[in-house]
């Protein structure tokens, strides 16, 4: 067991974790942040995407012990409680959500993209979410949702 401090969504948490625990497992099992999803546990589907120090990251591929002292943002921290982030609003409005399992992951990828590049082209949006697999939508509505926010 290792004692670490994790900064998640602006809150600091003192945790006892196993050295081989992934950030994804710690977020879900210890912090009860179930919005970050486990789709493959091997860094290939993007459903577990979070933002670490401003960069999108696959939380199933990062050990929690390596996240000490870094700023982690999950879907639960995207907007204050009771409010929606413009990307979330846009996702609803554009019909970008079907089963919803990949949704938190691509929203985090999109947030990281827009923070870096507030006016991306469609190709840039596609590249930013290319690591987020979606089996339901065919991606078009997801791209539209992101581009609508970018233009604002």
């Amino acid at each position: 067991m290792e004692r670490i401090t994790l900064n998640v969504n602006g809150q600091s948490h003192q945790l006892n974790i196993k050295v081989n625990e992934t950030l994804l497992d710690v977020l879900r099992e210890q912090l009860g942040l179930f919005g970050t999803k486990k789709g493959c546990d091997s860094g290939a589907c993007g459903a577990c995407t979070v933002i670490i120090d401003g960069e999108p990251a696959l939380s199933c591929m990062i050990l929690a012990v390596r996240c000490q002292g870094r700023e982690i943002l999950t879907i639960e921290g995207l907007a204050p409680e009771g409010e929606l982030h413009p990307l979330q609003e846009s996702a609803i409005e554009h019909g970008a959500v079907q089963c919803g399992f990949c949704t938190p992951g691509w929203l985090m990828s999109a947030k990281a993209l827009l923070d870096e590049n507030p006016a991306p082209s469609r190709r840039e949006v596609q590249a930013a979410i290319a690591g987020n697999l979606c089996r339901c939508t065919g991606y078009k509505q997801i791209e539209d949702a992101i581009l609508a926010v970018a233009k604002k």
């Binding site: 970050t36 907007a79 959500v97």
Partner: peptide, 21 residues
């Protein structure tokens, strides 16, 4: 018409409950 899906509001916030949750 195409009203907005009610489930989308849960899902975009990571509040949709799936079996693994």
């Amino acid at each position: 018409k195409s009203p907005l899906r009610a489930d989308a509001r849960d899902k975009v916030r990571g509040k949709g409950i799936y079996i693994d949750d």
